[in-house]
């Protein structure tokens, strides 16, 4: 995927993935890989909007669906080389907010608003029955200064109230308990 003439290049190119889990099925690496598919890739602002305008918004997805927007070359999996020492910030949202906040997060990531160098790997929106969950993945779970900056930027771009609970979970812990959240 390449930026074409006249388009506005992004700092990174990205892949958008979609997954849907059969409710009740415990996550495992093999069925996760089978259930995830690439929706498209883009390298410019224009290519992003073309893709984004043609896909369903999170609020129109059925439960147990996820969008994963990751830098090109990084699989949205805990085991990926870029992710395996990393973790993610998790924000749980009441129903009805996910589409708007997901868009805010995506625009902040594409526009390089996090200011943490190469640290950001990707972002995920998870549509569930009673709540929706937004998360942003970074490379180095052990770097506290980076993590605080990611958290503060997330809070700002999502315009979250100061009392919002934000959890950080390392992918090592996710692998141990086979659970994303």
């Amino acid at each position: 995927v390449k930026c074409k003439q006249g388009e506005h290049q992004l700092q990174y190119s990205y892949c958008l993935w979609f997954s849907r889990r059969t409710p009740g099925n415990k996550a495992s690496s093999s069925n996760y890989e089978q259930n995830i598919k690439i929706m498209g890739a883009f390298a410019s602002v224009e290519q992003f909007w073309t893709l984004y305008s043609h896909i369903a918004r999170p609020c129109d997805l059925t439960s147990s669906s996820d969008y994963h927007l990751f830098k090109h070359g990084i699989k949205p999996m805990w085991e990926d080389e870029a992710n395996k020492k990393g973790g993610k910030w998790i924000v749980r949202l009441r129903k009805g907010l996910a589409s708007r906040l997901w868009e805010n997060l995506v625009l902040a990531m594409l526009g390089e608003q996090f200011m943490v160098g190469e640290e950001i790997c990707g972002a995920v929106v998870s549509v569930r029955f009673a709540e929706d969950i937004i998360s942003i993945w970074n490379r180095t779970a052990s770097d506290n200064a980076i993590n605080i900056r990611v958290r503060d930027t997330l809070q700002r771009v999502l315009n979250l109230p100061p009392n919002t609970i934000m959890e950080y979970k390392t992918h090592t812990d996710s692998l141990k308990d086979r659970s994303s959240f």
Partner: peptide
């Protein structure tokens, strides 16, 4: 090196560009 930074308003405006359709 230099990074390509876009603010939210710029990105939202780009949505209506002919190349974004």
């Amino acid at each position: 090196g230099t990074r390509i930074i876009y603010d939210r308003h710029f990105l939202l405006n780009m949505r209506n560009s002919p190349l974004s359709q």
